[in-house]
Each structure stands twice: as structure tokens, then as C-alpha cells.
Amino acid sequence: MDQASWDAAYNNVDHIPDGASYPARWQARATTYLAKCLGQGRAQNDLPYGRGDRALFDLILPQGAAEGLVVFVHGGYWLKFDKTYWTHLAAGPTLAGWAVAMPSYDLCPDVRIGDITRQVAQAITVAAEQVAGPIALAGHSAGGHLVSRMMEPGMLPDAVAARLVSCVPISPVSDLAPLMNTSMNESLRIDAGEAQAESPVHMTDRLDVPVTVWVGAAERPSFLDQARWQAEAWGVDLVEATDRHHFDVIDALEDPGSAMCRAILRHG
């Protein structure tokens, strides 16, 4: 395929009805939800986990003592967005009694994808100091890639890794090599070495943590492929959510009784 074809294969916005409107809608819902949680004394925002303006996370707390911690890592092809777009997705886990940490991270081309991987590991490590108990990881799109990378032994400190109870990559990018053919790679700067080192499909040594790969059944064929490749390479469960596309598959995080929340929290 030529570059235009590769770009189309990994373009979600133009293949989702009213796709361009989603970011503003996400951020509006997230802002309203964060304000509500702050007003209830259930949120702490802009907690630092490292150096730099983007090395910050928000912590949303449940009513009462937290059963554990969910860390949600956002997507955007490692090029866009920050924690302020996603706070509403903490609703499901917090209603189920879990705290939720949502980090921002530096973006390409200022850093490489491998740098972001290490930054997310640092964010999880610092967030884990705030909440006792089990830790569950979830991430969407590029965030699905990033939480998958946390399954590499040694990526997280042993004490943090020992607390992990689940990892749910949602619509993940599991093989970076195809993105080398897109125009995005002018900013991502993925080369063959980084594609090999940073692609979850090539991770043969992994932590013994339950993993469920999630994807919308109505997603672009490229993302269905990416999810299937990871599930097959890792020998883990794959859920294809009926009638869900790349931008609404994450809505299930707002419902504590959803199959997605139950998989993250290991309830049923």
C-alpha cells in the first residue's frame, strides 16, 4: 500500500460518524465530572510524578476506603491529548469502590515512544504510593500499547508489579511496524529497532497477570487486526464489543456493572 492507504487504514476520525466532535465532547464531560469530584472532596488533580509540565496525574477517589487502584492511560497515537479529556471514565471503577489515577505524559515528537513507556511506568509507581491494595491497568489505543508494555518484567518495581491483578488493553496498538508507513511517523519517528523493542506482540517474557484485550467489533480492520495479533501472540482472551467503534468502546468504563469494568476489576 502507498502512504495514503496506510493513513486511511489507521484514521479513525474520518470513519466514525461525527468523529471530529468526540474530543470536545470527552473534555466537556471530563471537566464536569472532575469538578463534581473535587466539590465532593473525592479528587486530587495535578499530582506530580516526575519532571515537566505533563508529568502529572489526577486521582479520583471512591466514597469510603478504596479497594484498590485503577490506572487508566489515554490514547491519541502518542501525539495528542492529556488527562483532562478522560476523567469521566473513572465513574465506573469509583462507583465499584476503586480509586482511579489518570496520568498525562509527554508527546511525540518531543520524546520517543520508548520514553513515554518509561514515563508511564513512573506514573504508575508514584500513583501506587497513594492507594493501598491491588492495582489494575487499563489503556485505550496508544494507552493500550502503554499498559501492555508494563507487563514486561522489570518495567515496574517488583513491589508494584506484585500488586497487579489485571491489564486490559482497549483497542491497543500492539505492533508498531505498520505505523512506520504512515505520515504520522514524521512525528513518531518509529524505526525498525523501536518497532521491535516497543511492540507488545514481540514481548515473549511477561508478568503473570491476567490480560484481556478489548476492541470494538465495528472498529477499523487495522485495529481489529492489532487486537487479534496481541491476543494471539499472548494467548489471552479477546473481547470484540458488539456495535462499538474506536471512540465509543471506552464508554463502558463509566458503568461499574459493564463487562469491561468487571474484567478490569476482576469481578465475574
Rank of each mutant, 00 (worst) to 15 (best):
K80V: 14
S21T: 14
M260Y: 01
G97A: 02
D58H: 10
H202C: 07
D251C: 01
S166F: 05
E198Q: 15
Y105R: 10
P93H: 11
V100C: 13
V73T: 14
D225T: 09
V73R: 12
H267G: 07
N11P: 07
G193Y: 04
L164Q: 08
G133N: 00
A132T: 06
A138D: 04
A159W: 14
R244E: 06
R25F: 13
R29A: 15
M102E: 12
L47G: 03
G68K: 01
R244M: 09
P157R: 02
C167M: 13
L89D: 03
M151Y: 04
R51V: 15
V213D: 10
G216M: 13
T182W: 10
A231H: 04
R25S: 14
V249M: 01
A28T: 10
G257S: 12
A259K: 08
S21V: 08
L224W: 03
L188R: 07
P134G: 01
S199H: 03
A233W: 05
E152C: 09
Q226E: 07
W234F: 05
C261E: 02
A195K: 05
E240V: 02
R112G: 15
R244T: 07
A9L: 09
D2T: 06
M184G: 09
Y33V: 13
H74Y: 11
V249Q: 06
R51T: 15
D175L: 11
G19H: 01
W229H: 09
A218C: 11
D237H: 07
P157Y: 00
I60D: 11
G235M: 02
A241L: 02
K36R: 15
P93G: 12
D248Q: 01
D191M: 02
W234M: 00
V249A: 01
P153R: 05
D106C: 10
R206E: 01
L146W: 06
N12C: 08
K36E: 15
C108R: 10
E194T: 12
I135F: 03
D58S: 09
Q44C: 13
G39P: 11
G76H: 00
A99Q: 08
L207I: 08
R149K: 11
R29F: 09
F57L: 13
A43R: 13
I190F: 05
W234R: 01
G19S: 01
S187Q: 13
P48Q: 12
R51F: 15
A231E: 02
E240L: 11
A227V: 07
E194L: 12
T94D: 09
F72Q: 14
Q3M: 10
I170A: 14
G64R: 03
